[in-house]
Computed example of a mutant assay.
Amino acid sequence: MDLNLKDKVALVTGSGRGIGAAMVRAFAREGARVVVSDIDGGNASATARALVDDGFEAIALECDVTDVASVQHMEKMATQAFGGVDILVNNAAWTKDVYLTKMDPSLWDKTMDVILKGSFNCAQAMLPGMMARRWGRVINISSRSLFGNPGQTSYAAAKAGIVGFTRALSQEQGKFGITVNAIAPGFIMTEQMQSLPKFEQLREAAMARNPVGFLGEPEDVANATLFLASDAARYISGTTLYVTGGRYSS
């Protein structure tokens, strides 16, 4: 299937590594020009450089999505390089598992700032260009954790908020030819996940609850992102696609 993404410009936040890096690689393979955005400029540069070495069009931009000026600068640089952003993937996230009764308010605030405020900042910066071109895709990364996990009150609240943000924004932007959707990944075998001290316990627990009998890879989320960005999904907006292997709240 031709996804009709050739020469589209895709910007993925938090794409210096992990799921975000898999997304920009997937977009590049489909012929899109990609903006690798990350708060870690070194990771962003390394990922973009690898893409360029493979013959793809890519640039790296260091960006703090919680900072409006940083996001506006990112939009300006992306537009200078490629003429505008057609596809925005709000993937940047942050969390630290702490029970609510022990949580410092600053941890709550940082989670909300990166996930919710960051998505707001990036959408507000990129949407005017999409509206002018009468075509665009906004894909917000939520999580299966929106159903709740112990120690993740802040993360679950933020990721649930992404679903509401997605639904409301889709209502505003449909008339401009822009679709807005969310993806909620489940347990994904990223390098960061595998580096956790209790990774084996987490993996075994996830496997026991996963109906399909195997765990997801970053490419599984990237493929879902490609679909929602493509013309094949032109009549899908305001929805959340669960990439969980059939696991939901359990």
Rank of each mutant, 00 (worst) to 15 (best):
T244Y: 01
D54T: 09
E57S: 15
S37H: 05
I139T: 12
F165H: 01
V85G: 11
V163E: 06
R247T: 15
T239L: 04
G16K: 11
T95F: 08
K96S: 07
P197M: 13
A184G: 04
G20T: 02
N149V: 09
I236P: 14
E204W: 00
Q171Y: 07
L88C: 04
L215F: 06
G41C: 04
G161Q: 10
E62Q: 15
A157F: 07
G83T: 06
G164S: 13
G118K: 05
R17N: 01
G164D: 04
G148T: 06
L241G: 03
V98I: 15
A125V: 02
A125I: 01
T166A: 07
R209L: 15
M74H: 12
M74R: 10
V212H: 02
T190V: 13
V114F: 10
G83R: 11
G83I: 08
Q173P: 01
G151K: 01
K110A: 03
D97V: 13
W135F: 12
A60K: 14
T101L: 12
L228M: 13
M103W: 09
K159E: 03
C122T: 07
R209I: 15
G161K: 12
R29N: 03
A60Y: 04
L241E: 07
G42A: 11
A92S: 04
L202Y: 02
A160D: 11
A50M: 11
E62N: 05
L196Y: 06
R25P: 01
A69E: 15
S250W: 00
G216W: 03
L107K: 05
N140L: 09
A156K: 00
L116G: 02
V114P: 07
P105N: 09
E219D: 06
G20K: 08
T240P: 06
G246E: 03
C122I: 06
I39E: 00
C122F: 01
V34Q: 14
I139W: 05
G55M: 08
T95Q: 13
S70E: 05
D97F: 10
M1T: 09
A157P: 03
M77K: 13
L116C: 12
V71P: 05
A46I: 06
A205M: 05
A46N: 08
A125Q: 03
R29I: 00
